[in-house]
Design a protein around this nucleic acid. Structure first.
Lengths: 210, 210
DNA sequence: GTCTATAGTTCGATAGAC
DNA sequence: GTCTATCGAACTATAGAC
């Protein structure tokens, strides 16, 4: 099972001792994740989330104030996890070509491996409350800026040949993001295969000569 | 205003003389298009579609049997329009490099220019009735096959260097499709600019040396 | 913290007058 | 073909017992 906890390990450790309460929240998040990914936020009833978590409809509201709160926690965790993946890849090297290869590979692999969470992250932003939408939008901008800066650096040093670093960054991220739209586990290539191949495509995009 | 009629010109000419009846259907389609693109199929009430078309909630059902029928007509028209764009570009030349450049350019430009329709087409497939989903899925497969065959031909002749034509075709289409997710009219580059630049990116993807 | 029961609202779709 | 009025179902969220 694809757990939301696996997708966002930074939220796993807890100071509070009640492990059962946290398990209940995780079960609700998992249920909401699968439902939102399958039918969308507005196409999902809280009753169905509760049923999938083996709880009564009312029990949901002990742990989350509204249905939108469930979406926001999923969206925030997903955005932070994606940012972490990009940040770790960027930090793993200092040369733009190695950095970009790692980013494209890991960003793409993440969107394949966690395609259900990624679809919620990418397609349900309009259902977030305005304040919540602002929060995740700032994470999105940070990711784009990180990739653009690396491409710009590589272009300035002559390592890449890119007419428009902003557009190239957008294109590289688009490649990875759109994988979540069509990838399904167990059909065709593995998430790792796609990540490896897309990394090479990304380097081609920026005119890297290897 | 971005009209659905503009987006799918093949449905404009009519044999029946009642231009007012057709105008009403077009108004409903336009209203549904904007609403579905903004809030999703399940996030849209038929009352809101009716209001945007300056009609009563009941009047919708004179022209469309169900809300899903509205979505299906939008989805079908959108898929057919996208296919037509790809087909026209493919037929416009016989050399794979010219064909692929035209496809990537026009496919991308279409997803930018008609980004509202494209988002409905790409993100609301799960809301279609099973029989309707099958119909549009076959169009999607035809588009993918068309692009893959051109890339395969170019690879066999040594014009392209592609390890995996299927994945390259998916990547080229992904680039265009994902533009609909972030592009908004009047902000940043024009649809044509993006199409032109993405066409060059697509040729880089397939290892074309110009 | 879980449950049953339900309040209060909104939904898709229909009835029937004109 | 349009309207007003409304049906019956489904929805989010809450009340109150245990």
């Amino acid at each position: 099972m694809v757990s939301i906890t696996n997708a966002a390990p930074r939220a796993s450790a807890r100071t509070r001792g009640n492990s059962r309460g946290e398990g209940t929240r995780a079960k609700l998040l998992d249920a909401a994740l699968q439902a939102f990914a399958s039918h969308g936020f507005h196409g999902t009833a809280t009753r169905d989330i509760a049923a999938a978590a083996h709880m009564s409809p009312a029990a949901v509201y002990v742990h989350y104030r509204t249905k939108e709160d469930l979406l926001f926690e999923l969206s925030l965790r997903g955005h932070l996890a994606a940012q972490e993946v990009v940040e770790a890849a960027a930090t793993s090297a200092s040369s733009p070509d190695v950095q970009l290869r790692a980013i494209a590979r890991d960003h793409t692999t993440w969107h394949a491996r966690y395609n259900t969470l990624a679809r919620v992250v990418q397609y349900e932003m309009a259902a977030l409350a305005p304040e919540h939408a602002k929060q995740v939008a700032s994470i999105r901008r940070a990711i784009e800026t990180r990739v653009r800066d690396i491409i710009s650096t590589g272009t300035s040093s002559g390592l890449f040949r890119v007419p428009n670093p902003s557009m190239a960054a957008l294109a590289v991220l688009s490649l990875g993001i759109d994988v979540a739209r069509w990838y399904r586990e167990g059909r065709g290539w593995s998430a790792q295969d796609i990540g490896d191949q897309y990394a090479e495509l990304a380097l081609r995009l920026v005119g890297y000569q290897n």
